[in-house]
Lab assay of single mutants.
Amino acid sequence: KKKYVIKVYFEDTGKEVEIEAESKEEALEAAKRLAEELGLKIKKVEIYP
């Protein structure tokens, strides 16, 4: 089964997080949740198959 690796870059902090997920949708949801939890804004998202 294919996994996606999503790199999320946050504004202000210069922080980046990698998330593995089964689908792009799932990964983007996780990225949004994470940003909310951390109180950060997402600057850029890169998706690698």
Rank of each mutant, 00 (worst) to 15 (best):
L34W: 15
P49T: 06
E46R: 04
K15S: 08
E18Q: 14
A27Y: 02
K32L: 13
K44Q: 12
K43N: 10
Y9P: 00
E26M: 07
E20M: 11
K43G: 13
K32R: 06
I19A: 03
K15D: 05
E29A: 15
I47W: 11
A31P: 01
E29V: 13
D12R: 11
K41D: 07
K44W: 09
E36Y: 15
E11A: 06
E18V: 10
E26D: 12
I6R: 00
E11P: 02
E25N: 05
P49Y: 11
I42F: 02
K15H: 15
L40W: 04
K24L: 14
E46V: 15
S23T: 11
K15I: 05
G14R: 03
E22T: 06
Y9F: 09
K7P: 00
I6Q: 00
T13N: 14
K24Y: 13
I42D: 00
L38T: 05
I19L: 14
Y9W: 15
G14Y: 14
K1L: 09
E18M: 10
E20T: 14
E22N: 11
E22L: 05
T13A: 13
V5Y: 09
I42H: 01
L28M: 12
R33F: 05
S23A: 04
K3H: 15
E20N: 05
I42W: 01
T13S: 13
I42P: 01
E11R: 06
D12E: 08
E11S: 07
K1R: 12
L34N: 02
K44A: 11
K2M: 10
Y48L: 14
V17C: 05
E25W: 04
L40A: 09
A31E: 00
D12L: 12
L40R: 14
K7T: 07
K15R: 06
K3E: 08
I6K: 00
P49N: 10
A31K: 00
Y48P: 06
K32E: 10
L28Q: 12
A35I: 04
K43C: 04
I47R: 02
E22K: 03
E16C: 03
F10W: 11
V5I: 07
E11M: 05
E25G: 04
L40F: 06
I47E: 11
T13I: 13
I47D: 04
R33P: 00
G39C: 02
A31D: 00
K43L: 10
G39K: 08
V5M: 06
V8Q: 00
I42R: 00
E20V: 11
E11H: 09
L40N: 05
K1S: 04
E46Y: 04
R33V: 08
T13E: 14
S23H: 04
E37G: 08
K44N: 12
K1H: 10
Y4E: 03
K44D: 05
Y4C: 07
I6F: 05
L28K: 07
K3L: 14
G39V: 02
R33Y: 07
E18I: 15
Y9M: 13
E20F: 04
I19G: 01
E16N: 12
A35D: 00
Y9D: 02
I47T: 04
R33D: 05
K32G: 05
I47A: 05
K7D: 02
E26N: 09
K3V: 05
E25H: 12
V45Q: 03
E18W: 10
L40C: 03
E16Q: 06
I19S: 01
E22D: 08
D12A: 11
L38W: 04
E36S: 12
K2L: 15
Y9K: 04
